[in-house]
């Protein structure tokens, strides 16, 4: 697939809420890969690929054009810019030759909402019961969890900067939730 592909993200609204203290938007399309690797192989995989996969569950590494995260003891998730696709595919093809692992392209499966601003923690906490204090959920932490009962991957890329990565089938539901939140916020 060429690098100028356009995903049908299932949604067209780029911006859901735009205020001084909170901005919620649908982030641009990315390529995404789900990686299942034996934990014992991870040092060798990192050496061979240069992917910098974190070893700790919940850890992440934000690079120039890619974001790698560790979701479970043997599960990693890679989100990258569309033009990094060819580079990643080459790396994965090389890895598949020397390791027993599973790499699945899930680019079309997921979409990501971005939440920015001083009220971002409050907005995430409405649908997600995790403790988002910096002590328990520092910048760079990621985790699979639930948002209004929909399975998501929550990422924190800044103190007031969150990503809610969900399956695109859940996207209209979560967008609707944020739209209602925006209406309530405007009325309050």
């Amino acid at each position: 697939m060429s690098s100028d592909m356009k995903f049908d993200q299932g949604l067209t609204l780029p911006e859901i809420l735009s205020g001084n203290d909170l901005k919620i938007m649908l982030l641009p399309e990315k390529v995404r890969y789900s990686l299942r690797i034996k934990p014992s192989d991870i040092a060798a995989v990192n050496k061979a690929s240069g992917l910098k996969l974190p070893r700790k569950i919940g850890g992440s590494n934000l690079g120039k054009d890619q974001f790698v995260m560790c979701l479970g003891p043997d599960e990693w998730f890679v989100v990258a810019n569309v033009d990094a696709r060819d580079r990643l595919e080459k790396i994965f093809a090389k890895l598949e030759k020397s390791f027993t692992l599973s790499i699945t392209d899930v680019s079309h499966r997921n979409i990501c909402f971005g939440l920015m601003g001083a009220d971002a923690v409050k907005a995430v906490n409405i649908g997600c019961p995790l403790d988002l204090s910096l002590e328990h959920f520092p910048v760079g932490k990621v985790t699979r969890t639930v948002f209004e009962s929909a399975p998501i991957i929550l990422t924190r890329t800044g103190e007031d900067n969150f990503g809610i990565e969900c399956w695109r089938s859940f996207a209209p539901y979560i967008r609707g939730f944020f739209e209602r939140y925006a209406t309530d916020k405007a009325a309050a």
Binding site: G72, E75, R144, T145, V146, P151
Partner: peptide, 13 residues
């Protein structure tokens, strides 16, 4: 009671 639990929406273990 000793029982199994599944962290389904977490680390999946």
């Amino acid at each position: 009671h000793c029982e199994r639990w599944w962290h389904a929406n977490g680390c999946n273990m």
